[in-house]
Design a protein around this nucleic acid. Structure first.
Length: 599
RNA sequence: GGGGGUGUAGCUCAAUUGGUUAGAGCGCUGCCCUGUCACGGCAGAGGUUACGGGUUCGAGCCCCGCCACUCCCGCCA
């Protein structure tokens, strides 16, 4: 009964051998006097044939009663298929197993959705797929994702090991650190009113490991964030978490380029070019309007602030006079944009606080736009030459403060690319993966509403050494030693060189972030203590492992590469969690539920 | 928290302006079929149109509410 081969193994050379296969009935083709069973396992599928002249009536009847996804073990002789009946679509298509023994290991009920037909199965409502995840995962496409994920995880470990890294596990029961993402809390039974928190990332532990002398740490770390979800965000997710001592930014770039090169080779057999291009935060915003640019296509932002500062079109000249900028993009071939598309883009602009969206449609040799009449010849000339305007183009403008103007057009640029791509009008670079480093982020941002500074990455990020003197005089200008690795407009990961001098850390916490000394001590005291006893200069990075796998699998949703993902509301449809707990459990934890119960 | 989309047979989808008994393909059940691999043929079963209200002579379709899934904004140091 034990199987001798898997279902993607038998070839002509096995002819004549008696073999046993085990697996699921992928499909049954019952011709009345002859039955074909395709047996599927993890590796593939093999056709078996039941010929009543070669087996007992009982076995034949047993085969007649089978349906899709029953689990069976079959024994028989491998034989070449009769001429003209081979199946070139499957690897085992030249042979079949003439069954002499059939054991039904388990019957299957009629399935809630088909798993054998990739066309149909991939369109099945995701709700159903999540509820019956074990069936969904049987689909070859999903099995391929699991397998690729495993291979990439193992290749990651192997590469990091070769580079001298230690894999160290860090706790998932951690201390609450209210900065950043909302945390999942875990009540502590032993002391009422105290809680663990699940870590948003092992950030603090990995820095402590540097103080501990580990020097090179990595981990495939599970992280938890209690924030609203997206196609690329789950409440629990996996990071390739890395930290190194005695390094500079260049060391991280080189390491990650090597790692990604290895992973692309392992997963796709593809050689990706290194080193990756680098672009500063400022340049990324100026040219693409976003800090994670998709550089597979152009449509770059062009600045017209000089050309329009004296313009009689007051919306433009006024914005410039107020310290802002005028920028534009040329969506080539989009002059035929529908009213709905223009409206969508206008809504994007408005969501950034703009009053509207200025545009020019270039149709029939004419500039169709309500604003063109305000433009001088020089201004038109500047537009034509800088944007290389020609028939069929759609020019879109943003006039606002620098960051806002950039972000508006950045958003619109991506929207236009999507529309043009669907119409087959977008020129896309032949290289399918555009990696780049985005560097020189501002260390701090300013929150107008709360009237305070915040860390644009996290408070342990080191300032660029030359900029440290400006920390107190002009914080806005201080650049952080922070870097993001971006591929095709997806932020794959980010990290920084950390502060290892206690005095600089103290300045950041107390003088800039405005956290009182007492609170700093409560929240981060153990870390500041650790740094007193000989902290090496260090830095690291974390890569979003789920996103990485999704990109390699070519799927837009990380749910497709996580075995048991949660829905957009954070529920697990298979196990129906989260769920209520018994009064006794609550009592043990000294908890009382005050919210109104549902139902 | 806000905005958009979806919800009709087990699955994927139709259903004209609001108008007869809500249809099709696949799947399922039964019968027939010895070279199929999307097997084929014949017959059949299968519906609280997510759910709750409302408007109407009449609602799958219109209105209000609600639930689930999904995409986006906010959020994600």
């Amino acid at each position: 009964m034990k199987r001798t081969h898997h279902c993607n193994e038998l070839r002509l050379s096995h002819s004549g051998q008696t073999v046993t296969l085990a697996g699921w009935v992928h499909s049954r083709r019952d011709l009345g006097g002859l039955i074909f069973l395709d047996i599927r396992d993890r590796e593939g599928r093999t056709q078996t044939v039941l010929d009543p002249s070669r087996l007992t009536r009982e076995i034949f009847d047993r085969a007649s009663a089978l349906r899709s996804e029953c689990v069976v073990s079959v024994t028989g002789t491998v034989q070449q298929r009769p001429a003209g009946t081979g199946n070139a679509k499957i690897a085992t298509g030249e042979v079949e197993v003439a069954v002499t023994q059939l054991i039904v290991l388990n019957m299957a009920e009629v399935l809630p959705f088909p798993v054998d037909d990739p066309e149909v199965a991939s369109k099945v409502n995701e709700e159903l797929r999540l509820q019956y995840r074990y069936l969904d995962l049987r689909r070859p496409e999903m099995a391929r994702h699991l397998r690729l994920r495993s291979k990439v995880a193992i290749a990651t470990r192997q590469f990091m090991d070769e580079q001298g890294f230690l894999e160290v596990e860090t706790p998932t029961l951690f201390k609450s650190t209210p900065e950043g993402a909302r945390e999942f809390l875990v009540p502590n039974r032993r002391e009422p009113g105290t809680f663990y928190a699940l870590p948003q990332s092992p950030q603090q532990f990995k820095q402590i490991l540097m103080v501990a002398g580990v020097e090179k740490y990595f981990q495939l770390a599970r992280c938890y964030r209690d924030e609203d979800l997206r196609a690329d965000r789950q409440p629990e997710f996996t990071q390739v978490d890395i930290e190194m001592s005695f390094i500079e930014r260049e060391d991280i770039y080189q390491l990650i380029e090597g790692l990604l090169k290895r992973l692309w080779k392992t997963a796709l057999g593809m050689d990706i070019p290194t080193p990756f291009k680098r672009i500063s935060f400022e340049e990324a915003l100026n040219r693409y309007g976003i800090d994670k640019p998709d550089t597979r296509f152009g449509m770059e932002l062009v600045d017209f602030s000089d050309d329009f500062k004296g313009s009689s079109f007051k919306v433009f000249s006024g914005a410039i006079a107020a310290g802002g900028v005028v920028k534009a993009i040329n969506a080539k071939g989009m002059a035929g944009a529908t009213q709905g598309q223009i409206e969508t883009m206008t809504d994007y602009a408005k969501s950034f606080g703009a009053k509207g969206l200025a545009y020019i449609k270039v149709e029939n040799g004419e500039w169709k736009s309500p604003i063109v009449k305000f433009f001088s010849e020089a201004e038109k000339q500047a537009l034509t030459s800088k944007l290389k305007i020609s028939e069929g183009d759609l020019i879109l403008f943003a006039a606002d403060q620098w960051l806002n103007a950039c972000e508006i057009l950045g958003k619109i640029r991506l929207y236009c690319a999507e529309v043009l791509k669907a119409q087959g009008k977008l020129e896309v670079d032949g290289c399918p993966y555009h990696f780049l480093w985005v560097v020189e982020f501002p260390l701090l941002g300013f929150d107008r509403e709360q009237n305070r500074w915040y860390s644009s990455h996290h408070p342990f990020t080191a300032p660029v050494a030359d900029d440290i003197p400006m920390l107190k005089s002009d914080p806005r200008k201080v650049r952080g030693q922070h870097y993001d690795v971006v591929v095709n407009g997806v932020e794959l990961g980010g990290g920084s060189i950390r502060i290892h001098q206690p005095d600089v850390q103290k300045t950041i916490f107390e003088d800039l972030l405005g956290i009182p000394a007492e609170e700093t001590r409560l929240r981060f005291g153990y870390m500041l203590d650790a740094f007193k006893y000989g902290a090496p200069p260090h830095g690291g990075i974390a890569l979003g492992f789920d996103r990485l796998i999704a990109i390699l699998c070519g799927t837009p949703s990380i749910r497709d590469v996580i075995a048991f993902p949660k829905t957009a509301k954070g529920t697990d449809l298979m196990t129906d969690s989260p769920s209520t707990v018994s009064p006794r459990q609550l009592r043990d934890l000294y908890l009382e539920v005050k919210a109104a119960k549902k139902e």
